[in-house]
Design a protein around this nucleic acid. Structure first.
Length: 638
RNA sequence: GCCGACAUGGCUCAACGGUAGAGCACUCGACUUGUAAUCGAGCGGUUGUGGGUUCGAUUCCUACUGUCGGCACCA
């Protein structure tokens, strides 16, 4: 008896009943047999030896697909666990999934793994992979599975099994004498795993809960060829060169000093210049978008933070109070209470709304030491904060406006690649359900109206309201939340905010917190990594370095420099008594976009020889000509 | 906060149970230079901080501080 197999291109071929995806691959090409990792039969991923018992659609996946990689890495995780169990029979295994880049496996081991252990484990994995051990699937009852894992004292597996709902298929995968609870599918055998690298170890809580035991995690990656592994490791090294902490030091942008305190940032003149440009642009854009600027102090009395609820809910993130005149003052962890106080300073009419109040507000939060990270996670930072206070009728329009504003802002700085998520009501929340629904709906509508791709994060909203967050990834692919648009159903009530409606009655307004860049510090960190320090011209602290060939041309160099300055271009003359090659090298390392080389020729013809960072010599230009070219580049923000 | 690793001049890094060395940077001198490092000399460190072991520690132990990689947190 035969069955019909439909391929992704809609072509249909006839095969004998009980044929496997691997056999189908064999019928196509030997190259495919070598490369195929998994198959989707009727939209379900299966092992390659899975028998097909009816007419079906098929899709074969190689390592170049997301599906293929996931299965490949997941199988490598099993191989890792097998190797670890062989070397350390007493440890217990927990879980080991594939992740975005590679895989990990968590183990319960009293003494953490050492670097030497890692080397040994990797060797063992390679040894096991050469043995072409088959990944065998077996479906069994829950009782039997619990029995099996209880006998071998794999408590974590038993715990997982006990939580699998009744009636669900339970499958085990074994290679040789190692058996793991797993949904699968897997590679046909370990021999498919050619190149393996264990990357790092770390502690990780069982089931991601701080209250649980800390397990030992091993991260790794694998590829079908050594060449791909090498490339991956090379790319990783390259990515590390874009680290804002490294570039921040090299370009003298900022520093963080132990003597001042962890997570407290010093902005050096170069970084300060960039920050000032960013802030000027920010302010200009806010005025254009109907915002008003407010300012508020860095500290406030304890009563304020009691009213706001921060002392109750946020206290472990706040610095200790300062006692003055029998009063306690706290450094502000947020700006909102101050903006609300401005609002409450007079009776508000619906005719005034919406109000959009923005502030570059510097806040202090006591972040846990382990959370600190360069500019990305600090203890003192300046939020580009704003609060929008409006009526329910104005909600949709305000959300749309702020969403578009925020995307335009990121685009102005060159960001094209970011992830947007919509977070909805968590289990513990304040405020009326109907307000939550209205607000969430408003956020969702705005995203959909502009066809913005987003991920729905159910239950991940703040306790006080739903939100849209925009994450930007750093050089090592770690996501950092920058923009955020959050509703607040907590503070307006706590501070009893109202406006007088057309009906002459007081009504509670809607309040939206939003930060477009997030914080200047974090945003600057992502900006550095995104551009690898090769900033768009308009942001560069020094745009042109005028480099005289020798001391004889310093006068002409100064003349050029002055003309650049008069035209609003940030320039400097290199007065060092060095050869031209040295000075160019230095300017290149400093990533200065334009170098004007001036010597005899240039002086005589009143020109400059232009070199562009990373591009090289552009030839000779009349000064006016290159100045207008640069001005154009600056105004276009490219 | 938790797990692990690490901490040497401004920077990058070396060395050692017997009180530290290189390159770059910086200063001075010579050279007067044509698109990624000219040569020479000099300056610069009580080896993160405190305690302990030792005849002697920067090296070994310990606590703290900080950094790095994860985990957790992220109003």
């Amino acid at each position: 008896m035969n069955i019909n197999i439909t391929f992704p291109d809609k072509s249909v071929k006839e095969y004998p009943l009980n044929i496997s995806p691997l056999e189908i691959a064999e019928s196509i090409s030997s190259g495919l047999v070598r490369q195929v990792i998994t198959a989707k039969i009727n939209d379900k991923l299966v092992d390659l030896n899975n028998k097909i018992m009816e007419d079906a659609s098929i899709e074969l996946y190689k390592f170049d697909s997301k599906e293929g990689q996931e299965i490949y890495w997941h199988s490598t995780a099993h191989l890792l666990a097998q190797a670890v169990k062989e070397l350390f029979p007493d440890i217990k295994v927990a879980i080991g999934p594939a992740i975005e880049n590679g895989f990990y496996y968590d183990f319960d081991k009293e003494i953490p793994f050492t670097d030497d252990d890692l080397v040994k484990i990797e060797e063992k994995m390679k040894e096991l992979s050469k043995q072409n051990l088959e990944y065998e699937r077996k479906e069994i009852s829950r009782e039997d599975a619990i029995k099996i894992f209880s006998e071998i004292k794999e408590d974590y597996k038993v715990e997982l099994l006990e939580e699998i709902p009744e009636g669900e298929t339970i499958s085990l995968y074994s290679q040789e004498n190692f058996t793991d609870l797993c949904r699968g599918p897997h590679l046909p055998h370990t021999g498919k795993i050619k190149a393996i690298k264990l990357l790092k170890t770390s502690g990780a809580y069982w089931r991601g809960d701080e209250k649980n035991k800390m397990l030992q995690r091993i991260y790794g990656i694998s590829f079908p060829s050594n060449k791909e592994l090498k490339k991956y490791l090379h790319d990783l090294e390259e990515a590390k060169k874009r680290d804002h902490r490294k570039i921040g030091k090299e370009l003298d942008l900022y520093s963080i000093s132990d003597d001042i305190g962890a997570g407290l940032v010093l902005w050096h003149p170069n970084g300060g210049m960039m920050r000032s440009i960013i802030e000027d642009f920010w302010k200009e854009q806010h005025f254009k978008n109907g915002y008003q600027i407010v300012y508020s102090p860095h500290i406030g009395k304890s009563e304020l933070w009691e009213t706001s609820g921060h002392l109750e809910f946020f206290t472990e993130n706040m610095y200790q109070p300062i006692a003055v005149d029998e009063q306690e003052y706290y450094l502000k962890p947020m700006n909102c209470p101050f903006h609300i106080k401005i609002y409450n300073s007079q009776k508000r009419s619906y005719r005034e709304l919406p109000l959009r109040w923005a502030e570059m507000g510097t806040v202090y939060r006591y972040e846990k030491s382990g959370a600190l990270h360069g500019l990305m996670r600090v203890r003192g930072f300046t939020q580009d904060d704003a609060h929008i206070i409006c009526t329910p009728q104005q909600l949709d329009e305000e959300i749309e406006k702020v969403l578009i504003f925020s995307l335009e802002m990121l685009k102005a700085f060159g960001f094209k690649d970011f992830q947007i998520k919509l977070s909805t009501m968590p289990e513990k929340a304040v405020g009326k359900k109907e307000d939550w629904d209205k607000a969430t709906e408003s956020l969702r509508k705005a995203l959909e109206k502009y066809e913005i791709k987003y991920r729905l994060d159910e239950g991940a909203g703040a306790f006080y309201g739903p939100k849209i967050d925009i994450d930007i990834k750093d050089a090592l692919n770690r996501a950092w939340q920058c923009s955020t648009i959050q509703f607040d159903f907590n503070l307006p009530t706590r501070f009893n905010m109202t406006y007088i409606g057309a009906d002459n009655n007081p009504h509670p307004p809607f309040m939206i917190h939003r930060a477009l860049l997030g914080s200047i510090e974090r945003f600057f960190g992502t900006l550095i990594e995104y551009h690898a320090g090769n900033f768009p011209l308009w942001l560069c602290p020094i745009q042109v370095k005028v480099i005289p060939i020798s001391e004889h041309y310093e006068e002409y160099a100064e003349k050029v420099n002055n003309q650049l300055k008069e035209n609003g271009i940030r320039s400097e003359v290199d007065h060092k008594n060095e050869k031209i090659g040295y000075k160019i090298r230095e300017a290149e390392i400093q990533k200065i976009p334009y170098m004007f080389i001036v010597g005899e020729k240039e002086k005589d013809s009143q020109t400059v020889s232009v070199r562009r960072h990373l591009k090289g010599d552009l030839g000779s230009f009349k000064l006016d000509e290159i100045i207008s070219k640069i001005q154009e580049e600056i105004s276009e923000k490219i």
